[in-house]
Amino acid sequence: MNRISPIGCKQRGIAALEFVVSAPLLILLVFAVTELAWAFHQYHTMTRATRDGARYMAANATVGSVGMIYLDATRVQETGNLIVYGNVTGAGAPLLPGWTQGDVAVTSPDAIHVRVSATYDYMPLVGTLPTFYGGEPLNLQFAMQSTVEMRAL
C-alpha cells in the first residue's frame, strides 16, 4: 500500500512557496552586489589612471637642471590622454565609458609638486531604481573624484 500521511499532504508546496518568497530578495542582493562591484571597478580604474598620469607628469614637468616646474600644453595634453585613454597619443576608446579629457586637471600647487585631478560620473548598470508607493525614481549616478600629488623629479 502506498499511502500519503496527513502530515506529508500538509507539507506539499512549502518549498515552492519559500522560493517564491525568497527569490526576489536573492535577486535584489545579486543586483546590489553586481552594482557595487561595477562601481568599485570604475573607481579603481580611475584612481589607477590618475596615479599613472601624475607619475608621467612628475617625470616630465621639470626643465633642465634648475628644477623649475613647467607645465607646457603638450605635456598636459599627453597626461590627459594617458589618464583617459591609457596612452599618450589618445588613440583608442576611453578606459571608462563617457570619460573625456575635460574631466582631467593638471596643476602645480607649489614649486616642487604637480597635482593631477580627475572626475568621473559613475554610470550604473541599472540606471534608476523605481520607488515603491510612487515618488521619483532613485538615480544611482554620482561623481567620483581622484587627486594625486607628486613631487616633480
Rank of each mutant, 00 (worst) to 15 (best):
G64P: 03
Y56G: 10
Y56W: 13
P94Q: 02
N81P: 09
I69M: 08
I4L: 07
V66P: 02
V66A: 13
M150A: 05
A37P: 04
M144R: 12
W99R: 08
L26R: 01
G135D: 02
G80N: 09
D72E: 04
T47V: 14
G127K: 07
T119P: 10
H44V: 09
A152Q: 05
V33R: 00
I14D: 00
V148N: 07
G102S: 15
L71M: 10
V63F: 07
R151P: 03
Q42G: 05
A118D: 09
L95E: 10
D110S: 06
E149C: 03
D121Q: 15
Q141M: 11
A118I: 12
L95Y: 05
M123F: 04
I14M: 07
G134M: 03
H44M: 08
T47F: 06
P109T: 03
Q11C: 00
M68V: 13
Y85H: 08
F40I: 14
A93R: 05
V148M: 13
V63W: 04
Q42T: 15
E136V: 04
A111L: 05
V84N: 07
T128C: 01
T119F: 11
M46C: 08
M123G: 12
A58N: 10
L29C: 04
E136H: 03
T34I: 12
L17Q: 00
R3M: 00
Y133E: 02
D52Q: 14
S5G: 09
P124W: 08
G127E: 04
P24S: 01
M57C: 15
G86C: 10
T62G: 04
A49V: 12
L140T: 06
Y133D: 03
G86W: 09
V148Q: 09
F132H: 02
E149W: 04
V84Y: 07
W38E: 01
W99H: 13
Y85F: 15
E18I: 00
S22V: 01
T50E: 06
Q11A: 06
R55K: 14
P6H: 03
A58H: 11
E149G: 01
